[in-house]
């Protein structure tokens, strides 16, 4: 017979019990996916003139890509939160989505402000035996929040590698671009975006991660993965040092 304490501390048990999405989350995610898909397919509703079928096909493709990105994003956050003894939930940010829509109309789909929402976590004291269990603290919250954008960045790198193997596939390049924007925008330190949680947890770690992700993601458009990672690391290191010597020391 399995010891109930062992069962309680097992990661797979916690995932099975706490990974699920509630009704509000699913509703919010559906709205966010549709709006983000609309933003990223804004300038793809016809080549010379408006074409409904062409646009709908691109819109559907965008929905699939955004759905995949959302699943990866949420999974990374939830797994990290569960591992730290928290239950993560995602909440929609209506102003962020509306700002994204406005910017899409103003820039004719050139500027993608993909800020769908942010994570909130609940403390589960029973799952934090042998560690601090007297309430929420910033670091695990920041860590679980930042895993979402980092997972998107990883997905963008995977799509870049796939794009190198299949250079004629436009859909892969689009998927890479969407994940790049998702990773960068969600790392901004604007509450309730996920970057803000890490910003409040540790400014030094935040600035390093932000520069690493932004540097890697922007150079991913022009260079291969290794060079991009190197540029990201150098950017992260420089900004980290600049912050330390100017403000934090």
């Amino acid at each position: 017979m399995v010891n109930p304490i062992d069962r309680l501390s097992s990661f797979s048990y916690a995932v099975k019990k706490y990974y699920g999405f509630d009704k509000d989350e699913l509703k919010g995610m559906a709205v966010a996916i549709v709006i983000i898909a609309f933003i990223v397919s804004f300038d793809e509703w016809g080549v010379d003139k408006f074409d409904l079928m062409y646009g709908l096909r691109n819109f559907f493709n965008a929905i699939l890509i955004v759905l995949l990105s959302f699943i990866v994003y949420q999974t990374a956050q939830r797994f990290t939160a569960i591992k730290s003894g928290f239950k993560a939930e995602w909440r929609i940010w209506i102003y962020g989505l509306l700002i994204g829509l406005v910017l899409a109309f103003v820039s004719r789909g050139k500027l993608w402000f993909l800020a769908p929402g942010g994570v909130i976590v609940y403390h589960m004291a029973g799952h934090r035996i042998c560690s601090f269990r007297y309430g929420l603290n910033y670091w695990p919250l920041g860590l679980s929040a930042i895993m979402g954008p980092l997972a998107c960045a990883m997905l963008a790198i995977i799509f870049k590698i796939l794009g190198a193997a299949l250079p004629a596939n436009i859909l892969i390049l689009k998927a890479m671009k969407i994940n790049i924007w998702l990773a960068i925008v969600n790392l901004l330190p604007i509450p309730p975006l996920d970057g803000s949680n890490m910003f409040f947890a540790s400014r030094m770690f935040y600035i390093f991660t932000f520069a690493l992700v932004v540097g890697t993601m922007i150079s991913l458009i022009f260079f291969n993965v290794l060079i991009s990672l190197l540029i990201g690391l150098v950017a992260g290191f420089i900004l980290w040092q600049v912050l330390y010597w100017t403000l934090e020391k």
């Binding site: 509306l98 700002i99 829509l101 406005v102 109309f105 103003v106």
Partner: peptide, 10 residues
């Protein structure tokens, strides 16, 4: 008109 409608929603 679409953008002002979105601003109205906000």
């Amino acid at each position: 008109y679409i953008v002002i409608f979105l601003f109205g929603l906000m």
